[in-house]
C-alpha cells in the first residue's frame, strides 16, 4: 500500500508543482499536470484497499504519458520537463508494486464471470438451507 500512498502524493504534487516550480504561465504544461495529477491521485487512492488494488495498474499508461509528454507537447521549460519525467518514472514503477494482500475475496473480480472459483467451491461445501433461521 505504501507505494500507492506515494503515488497519491505524486498526483497531488503534480497539481501544485507548476505554482511551486514557477512555470504557472505555461498553459500547455500546467493543463497537462492539472489533468493528470487528480486522475493519478484518484487511481492511487482507490487502490489503497485490497479489493480494488488492481486499479493501481491504470496509472501505468498515465505514468508513461508523463515520460513522453515533454517531447510530444514540446515543453520549453527544463524544470517542467524534469518534473514530468521524474514523476512519470516513479508513478510507472510504483504502480507495479502490489504490496501485501492479507484478506481473501472469494476469488476476486474475475470470479464474477469465471466458473469453478474460490467462492463457488466454498459455497458448495456449505449446506443449502436458509442460514438466517
Amino acid at each position: 500500500m505504501w507505494a500507492q500512498v506515494i503515488n497519491a502524493i505524486l498526483g497531488i504534487w503534480l497539481m501544485a508543482s507548476a505554482a511551486m516550480l514557477g512555470y504557472a504561465d505555461a498553459k500547455t504544461i500546467t493543463d497537462n499536470e492539472h489533468i493528470l495529477g487528480p486522475v493519478i491521485a484518484s487511481f492511487a487512492i482507490i487502490s489503497w484497499w485490497e479489493a480494488t488494488r488492481v486499479v493501481r495498474l491504470y496509472n501505468v499508461p498515465l505514468g508513461l504519458w508523463l515520460l513522453l509528454a515533454p517531447w510530444v507537447l514540446g515543453f520549453d521549460n527544463t524544470a517542467a520537463t524534469v518534473n514530468s519525467m521524474v514523476v512519470g518514472a516513479l508513478v510507472t514503477g510504483l504502480s507495479f508494486v502490489k504490496g501485501k494482500i492479507e484478506d481473501t475475496y472469494g476469488g476476486g473480480w474475475s470470479a464474477v464471470w469465471k466458473s469453478d472459483t474460490l467462492h463457488a467451491r466454498e459455497a458448495r461445501k456449505q449446506p443449502r438451507v436458509d442460514l438466517d433461521k
Partner: peptide
C-alpha cells in the same frame, strides 16, 4: 474518491 475502494468489496 476515498469512498470508492471500501464500497467496492461489498459489491464484489
Amino acid at each position: 474518491v476515498v469512498m470508492i475502494g471500501p464500497a467496492m468489496d461489498e459489491m464484489l
